[in-house]
């Protein structure tokens, strides 16, 4: 549950508008009149990317028409609408416990045309059934990864915020790894370091393993995430493998190349920053021959069994910028 800092859009309204326009380009290309995005407290980064709305509880749908302003259609009480208006770009906020009917009423106001369901596969089935049955005269089309794809290479605002998220991961892991406390005490230090630094959300675990204490931490700052994990007691072999893989990390490199660099006996994996919130559970595993896009931000993981080291990197120029460990440590 999100319980960290939520700040208004401030001077960045144009950035959010530009993001909506990129989605609209895709909508026009697909012949879609209205795009619908579903989000809940666990997974709503696409919605936040377009609107800065923080769904801190329950679930909701954001409708983006080809013309006019986006709207929130949600079960959330109207009481929180003033806060949502203050902190997001949304001005059209609608609430009802009957979400299909609410969405249907919204569609009735729009001109005829196809409705795009962004990542339809992950929408709750009864909600999709309800929308389709109440408005069977409409045509519906899946828009898989229509927003996520645009987020993989972060824009200037997201780049700045990912660096902030990375710094908070660095501070949190440092506080947890440097201490001598119990796992609970280490997590407490980590949480304080990240949240007092302005994190919107923190997911942290500290687990005893056969190889020592394992600490991992994901931090959301504003609408983006960074992730890192460490072994509190060190693991020189794993660290050497990780160092070799991270040294090879650069734009256009492949997962297969990173695996070769790390060597046998360890498993290398990559997660786009867009999938940190769900720990990569929903993403299609990358093809080992696919090359990493320049400008993208990725978590590099090198693991052996339940133990793994991880850091988040921004791929820039011909190299990679470590975001969750100091440059000295990365070297």
């Amino acid at each position: 549950m999100k319980r960290g800092l939520v700040e208004p859009v401030g001077a960045n309204a144009d950035v959010y508008q530009a993001r909506v326009e990129r989605l609209r380009e895709r909508m026009r290309h697909a012949g879609v009149e209205v795009a619908l995005l579903y989000g809940d407290v666990y997974r709503s980064d696409d919605i936040a990317h377009l609107t800065n709305l923080c769904i801190y509880w329950n679930e909701g749908v954001v409708a983006v028409p080809t013309e006019g302003s986006a709207a929130l259609l949600a079960k959330l009480s109207k009481r929180v609408h003033p806060w949502m208006r203050r902190t997001s770009t949304l001005t059209d906020l609608r609430a009802s416990q009957q979400l299909p009917e609410l969405i249907g009423a919204y569609l009735d106001e729009r001109r005829a045309g196809q409705v795009g369901l962004v990542d339809e596969r992950w929408w709750p089935a009864p909600l999709v059934d309800g929308i389709r049955s109440t408005h069977s005269d409409r045509a519906y089309v899946d828009m898989p990864e229509a927003v996520r794809t645009e987020r993989i290479v972060p824009d200037a605002l997201d780049r700045a915020d990912i660096r902030r998220a990375g710094a908070l991961v660095r501070a949190g892991l440092g506080a947890a790894v440097d201490g001598n406390g119990t796992p609970a005490e280490r997590i407490a230090e980590l949480e304080f370091a990240a949240r007092a630094g302005g994190a919107r959300d923190v997911i942290a675990r500290c687990l005893p393993t056969a190889f020592g204490l394992h600490v991992e931490c994901s931090v959301q700052f504003a609408n983006v995430w960074a992730h890192g994990s460490r072994m509190a007691d060190g693991d020189s072999a794993l660290e050497a493998a990780f160092a070799a893989a991270s040294a090879a990390l650069a734009p256009e490199v492949t997962l297969a190349a990173l695996q070769r660099a790390a060597g046998d006996g360890v498993l290398v994996s990559l997660i786009s920053h867009t999938d940190i919130a769900t720990d990569g559970d929903l993403m299609v595993p990358p093809n080992s021959a696919d090359s990493l896009p320049p400008g993208g931000a990725f978590v590099l993981r090198v693991g052996r069994g339940a133990v793994r080291l991880a850091d988040t990197y921004l791929l820039a120029g011909s190299s990679s910028e470590p975001l969750t460990r100091s440059l000295e440590a990365a070297a």
């Binding site: 319980r3 960290g4 609970a184 407490a188 949480e191 304080f192 949240r195 007092a196």
Partner: peptide, 13 residues
């Protein structure tokens, strides 16, 4: 948010 951070640390501890 600093108040929340302090509270969170206490309950996690």
């Amino acid at each position: 948010y600093e108040v929340v951070a302090s509270t969170e640390a206490a309950l996690k501890r």
